[in-house]
Design a protein around this nucleic acid. Structure first.
Lengths: 340, 340
DNA sequence: TTGTAAGCGTTATCAC
DNA sequence: GTGATAACGCTTACAA
């Protein structure tokens, strides 16, 4: 037989007994529902005395609210996403919610698995930031048992709250800036091209070439195997081995930083010989050598907005869908100064 | 009256009814407890048919297991901690656990509040990484309702599983390396000194000065207001405004990177005029210009070990306490090459 | 092997 | 205003 030891945590029953009231009354006081001042006083004192704290599982079971939201993103190590985590955490905290973090490592099936797990109902909602939003994603999101907010570009017609960065015009602006600086052999170091950011940024690059009257040159196109440092460095090496660009537009800051390493290793000067531009305006871009010109895509702001949309949607499931765009902004630093 | 609509999620009852068995049998099948192959078949089919997934809250309420662990750390934006998050996430996933992330922003009272929140029992355990482990922390950890594993240096005698980095000897080794390279005016750019890392690294710095026969010079000591980029840059500016070191040992990589920016801005060459060493061996250190010599404190490994200790402790609450140390390793790169 | 039934700790609907 | 009491969805003795 199980002995009710003093060691295990006090429940509402404990409190109610001590205060000489019913469990119901105790519950009311705990939940701040209006009661007779005297009973309220008694219950409060009793709760205080035994150090009562409501049990999360019991509460969620009854109330169908977990007080938790999840953020699923591709890569914890990328400062873009940590900026998002920070922003989301702030919103969550203000709302009294906990944050479940899930890194998917860019694995589509992992994302879909996570989406399926939502059926366990351990969260009230999900913020999904995925690099590749497939039809399967759209289906999974549509049939998800809890609200989902997407950071990125869902497939056309997906019924979700969405926050987008306009990276295509952002990319174009960056490339036009290089052109305006006098650069004419502008290379593009992309990340994986089947991803949403990869394809959007490539389109932006082409847009700019066209509007600048520059010919597309496949020799100046290279793709890193991931949006991170080392793949960026390797891709830059491949590019430099066969071409002599006077500028490189990189699909994000990490690739740019990797490229910077490769460029320096090749004894080439930035920005004199090669101008460099990144994307994301991560906290790193201000402290590279030289400081990196980049396109701010408002990562933290997008995340903040997504979190707020999600919380609103949780409160009002039938609220009409929102689709917010955040405008890019070119941040000019030394890495794309005048050519020699 | 509440209508049981087809839209709301199937429960065990739904499955049991469909399979024509009792709830208990259904539960057994779901939990992989041995049953008659035929009923098992029926239940599995029924569960499949209605898309049954167990409800997390109900399960935790009964089983007293949440399947969640928490990681509380000072700063999501610091790559040291994201490396830890990555490692912990891997262990958690392998264990089938979810990860709750909590960033404390180095706020002691926030950490204590989070510790107190554990009473809600929404996690099975906590990995705590705090910069300043006070007596209040020790008390809170000791009386925590779930196991806690600490990354860092708990106060003497605190009864917790612990994983430490030996940053004091690590710091000393870095400084001795600078000495061996011929540097004689070795400055120290620390982070906040009342923190555990701050005080340990300072002691290591002094250890090395002593063993190298160098005099302590307060002019060469400067403190950044935080272990991050911008405070590091500002502190370096203050230092350079009043002293002419030929080397700077920085309390971590972010401070070093900030310092690098300040040094470059002052037109000083690294490593010719000033050699630079950081700490943590974050993924950034290989791609700075020049690449940063640093001390690897095994962040990811410490986190991995802490996560494993925590999971073990959750499984075996009476297991004897473990206190693991991870040895530092100097990683030499170009930022501390030969002086002019 | 399977079914019955007693909770896990709450919240919320009732009568009182 | 307050107190029984019935859920919430599940696990697990215990009985059959």
């Amino acid at each position: 037989m199980q002995q009710k030891s003093e060691a295990d945590p006090p429940t509402l029953t404990t409190v109610a007994r001590l205060a000489n009231v019913s469990i119901a009354s105790a519950s009311r006081v705990i939940n701040g529902i209006k009661t007779n001042p005297e009973t309220m006083e008694r219950v409060t004192a009793a709760a205080e005395a035994v150090g009562y704290v409501p049990n999360a599982a019991a509460r969620s079971l009854r109330s169908r609210r977990t007080g938790q939201i999840a953020f699923a993103m591709p890569d914890v190590a990328n400062p873009v996403y940590t900026a998002m985590v920070g922003a989301i955490q702030q919103v969550a905290r203000a709302n009294g919610s906990r944050l479940i973090l899930h890194s998917t490592d860019r694995d589509v099936s992992d994302e879909l698995g996570f989406l399926a797990d939502l059926k366990q109902r351990y969260v009230d909602g999900l913020i999904l930031c995925s690099l590749e939003f497939t039809d399967a994603h759209a289906d999974a999101v549509a049939s998800a048992p809890v609200p989902v907010a997407v950071i990125g570009h869902p497939t056309k017609g997906a019924k979700v709250d969405t926050v987008r960065a306009n990276s295509r015009p952002g990319a174009a602006e960056a490339v036009r800036h290089l052109y305006a600086q006098g650069r004419r052999r502008i290379a593009f170091l992309n990340g994986p091209e089947q991803t949403a950011p990869g394809s959007a940024r490539k389109l932006g690059y082409f847009d700019a070439l066209r509007s600048c009257g520059l010919a597309r040159d496949d020799e100046l196109l290279e793709v890193a195997s991931d949006f991170t440092l080392e793949p960026g460095r390797e891709a830059a090496e491949r590019l430099l081995a066969r071409a002599t660009p006077d500028a490189i537009f990189c699909a994000n800051d990490l690739i740019a930083l990797g490229a910077m390493t490769a460029i320096r290793a090749a004894g080439i000067d930035v920005p004199r010989d090669i101008a460099l531009v990144g994307m994301d305006n991560t906290n790193l871009s201000a402290v590279t050598s030289p400081p990196l010109t980049t396109v701010d895509l408002g990562s933290a702001e997008r995340a903040r907005i997504a979190a707020e949309l999600l919380l609103l949607r949780i409160e009002h499931p039938n609220r009409r869908l929102r689709n917010v765009g955040v405008e890019p902004e070119l941040v000019v630093r030394e890495s794309c100064g005048a050519p020699r």
